[in-house]
Design a binder for these strands. Structure first.
Length: 188
DNA sequence: TATGAGATCAACT
DNA sequence: GTTGATCTCATAC
């Protein structure tokens, strides 16, 4: 498997996001195949970077190929990959993965037996993979991250983003067609 | 199956 | 003081 490096992310989120579907993400050897993502652009009212830099989102304004982690609803951690369309602050939110490595560890962290619920949602996957603010600003091509390109281009579904109150109509959600590990199914 | 409350924090008004 | 890129559990159809 080919490892993905920084140049992969130095493109528009709208190219990076679909190209990441089917890629393999491991953190400390725990993880699986990415099956769902959402794109966020700095021109997008729903993006954290829309109103400019803050201490929280500073990483998004930095170079591409780094992890941006933020706390959601005071409870969950959410994992993003920073991209670079024309030097602006954009990122893709990892929404779901298909668990493949370190199942026992993920189950222990989540306190759950159901495999399909381990990582089917941004908060769930962050908890299962042990992502915290400690990962904010880390490079994606260095430990503890490992990111591998998919071998074949899968069938990709697109749809409307989930859980937003602003710009919710933008079709910037990408998923692996037919996967049962999605946070919600795509309409086809 | 579907809706509703609660958890809990940083940014924003 | 309010809101949000969420999830879980409880109660009501």
């Amino acid at each position: 498997m080919k490892q993905l490096h920084q140049p992969f992310f130095a493109r528009s989120v709208h190219y990076v996001a679909p190209d990441l579907i089917g890629a393999t993400l491991l953190i400390n050897g725990v993880g699986g195949r990415i099956v769902e993502l959402e794109a966020y652009h700095h021109t997008d009212p729903a993006a954290h970077s829309y109103r400019g830099p803050t201490p929280r989102n500073a990483v998004m304004f930095g170079p591409p190929g780094f992890a941006y982690v933020y706390r959601s609803y005071g409870i969950h951690w959410c994992l993003n990959f920073v991209c670079e369309p024309a030097g602006s602050a954009s990122a893709v939110l990892i929404r779901a993965i298909e668990p493949l490595e370190g199942l026992a560890k993920m189950r222990r962290r989540r306190g759950l037996a159901e495999e399909r619920l381990l990582c089917s949602g941004p908060g769930r996957l962050a908890q299962a993979m042990g992502v915290t603010i400690a990962h904010n600003g880390l490079a994606l091509d260095q430990p503890p991250f490992e990111l591998y390109a998919r071998e074949k281009k899968p069938e990709i579904a697109t749809g409307v983003r989930i859980g937003l109150t602003k710009a919710a109509e933008l079709p910037w959600r990408y998923g692996l067609k037919g996967s049962k590990f999605l946070s919600k199914p795509f309409k086809t």
